[in-house]
Simulated scan of single mutants.
Amino acid sequence: MRIDLSGKTALVTGSTQGIGEAIATGLARAGASVGVNGRSDHSVAAAMARIESAAAGGLVAAPGDLATDEGCRRVLSVLPHVDILVNNLGVFGAKPAFEIDDDEWRRYFEVNVLAGIRLTRAYLPGMIAGGWGRVQYIASDSAVVIPAEMIHYGMTKTALLAVSRGFAKEAAGSGVTVNSVIAGPTHTAGVEDFVYQLVDKNLPWEEAQRVFMREHRPQSLLRRLIEPEEIANMVVYLSSTFASATTGGALRVDGGYVDSILP
Rank of each mutant, 00 (worst) to 15 (best):
I226Q: 04
G20T: 01
T25Y: 03
S43F: 03
Q219K: 14
E229G: 09
Q219P: 02
Y237V: 01
R74L: 13
A232E: 03
A189S: 14
G38W: 01
G173V: 11
R73Q: 15
G18T: 10
H187C: 01
T188K: 05
D69R: 08
G20F: 00
A250W: 05
G173N: 13
G248P: 02
A10Q: 07
E206F: 04
K157Y: 11
Y237C: 01
V181W: 00
N112A: 11
R50F: 09
L222V: 08
A62N: 04
T158L: 13
E207W: 12
F194S: 02
N88K: 02
S164N: 12
S142G: 14
T25N: 05
V236R: 01
E104F: 08
V195C: 05
P263L: 09
G175V: 05
S174G: 10
T120Y: 01
I19H: 02
R223F: 10
D101T: 12
V191G: 01
H216P: 00
Y237P: 00
D65T: 11
V36N: 03
A28I: 03
F194G: 00
A183K: 03
V199H: 06
G133H: 03
F98W: 14
V211A: 11
P80D: 07
P204F: 12
A10V: 07
A45K: 14
